[in-house]
Design a protein around this nucleic acid. Sequence first.
DNA 1: CTATACCTACCGAGCGATCGCTCGGTAGAT
DNA 2: ATCTACCGAGCGATCGCTCGGTAGGTATAG
Lengths: 226, 226
Amino acid sequence: MTRTFPSINPEASPATDTSSRPGSIRESSWRDYARDDLPPILSSALACFMEQGYHGTTIRQVAARTGLSVPGLYHHYPSKHALLVALMSHAMSDLWTRSQLAIAEAGTSVPRQFDLLVECLVLFHARRRELAFIAYGEIRSLNGTARSEHIEARDRQQRLMDSIIARGVETGIFTTRFPREASTAVITMCTGVAQWFQPHGSLTPEELAERYREITTMAVGRSGTF
Amino acid sequence: MTRTFPSINPEASPATDTSSRPGSIRESSWRDYARDDLPPILSSALACFMEQGYHGTTIRQVAARTGLSVPGLYHHYPSKHALLVALMSHAMSDLWTRSQLAIAEAGTSVPRQFDLLVECLVLFHARRRELAFIAYGEIRSLNGTARSEHIEARDRQQRLMDSIIARGVETGIFTTRFPREASTAVITMCTGVAQWFQPHGSLTPEELAERYREITTMAVGRSGTF
DNA sequence: CTATACCTACCGAGCGATCGCTCGGTAGAT
DNA sequence: ATCTACCGAGCGATCGCTCGGTAGGTATAG
């Protein structure tokens, strides 16, 4: 029943190596969005889901976009639902990995943890806009265990922000009277970026992250100078 | 071609009159969500769209939920798409009407306009949670002119907040360095309420509106005392 | 007062199209 | 001989929608 389906070669480009650049021995990898490692079929599925939603997309459209026949597609994924699950879990695990790296880089300073987590969230939802859009908009299209696992991953992400803000309020660094709602508001702001950000707009993801860092900082009421 | 389709009687309940209560001659109507005037068919469609999305919902499900046959439903609405259009335009015009009433009540004070608009937005997205959820999540399911009209209505809502924050920054009442992004952030926060608010949770819509008023006030950097 | 006409508000049955998915293959590499 | 990586054809189910009705109310003519 539980067959393993191989995935199409995730483009093993041997030429460009962005991990080591002259001048910097080790960049923070959670800021790096140079390579998009989505296999071709998932990339096609993502494009279709963006345009028409999960239920509005047919398996034939995904196959045609990839240059495959319908049985050719089913050789790689057992069902239409599996395409959505693969996209969703990829999105949530990628965001979780980046978030943990960002917080690790921040060390023990709570305001710095807050700053880097906001930066991480904004960068992800701007750079992986389509993936994040689907991950937050198609939850109700998930069935069974995949749905509860996705919601658990989302709640875990929320608790990360909750705990940072709660610690900031305890130590008097953040002055907001409503830590829980402020956390929800900050998370909503950052994930909402995926719903309006335009890659060719006037702001780069990095510029937006800096502005959102300042706005969210004011929202939680950080004491001291800016 | 353009037949007019009548709507099912929007419940003419003659008994309860909530508009005039003892002690207050005229309440602000934009805060009143006592009566939900959605016709039965649209109410069924909304429930189905919430559970499975527009494309995931069949016309037979909507009909069965209303207690009608399929042709019976088509007597009232010419197509499945028309159900979505009716829900969308109802949501946007209701929100627009309430927003204008809120700002009118605020008078010429910019901070008060900001406060009441935030309160109006939070109340709407908490009290009309399902309607707002569909209105922001099913835009891509809209076709033709309905889509562009909906987007125009959404942009008009955004400009309302933009102009208030811009005036606040000009007069020095708001100190944010990024009025445009702060406006987007505030709108995203408030509309995002529809994605997580639970009617039977620990906060009433009114309590949440008050907390969000304070959080958004800090986000735009209002000068002076709180 | 009745007869006919016309209206709204529905429904049983079903049409053509399309859906997710599968069967039974083929081509090439190992 | 066996594996991966596909494909042409098509199956049963379901989709949005429609055809040709019926039941009951109201309006007008005789």
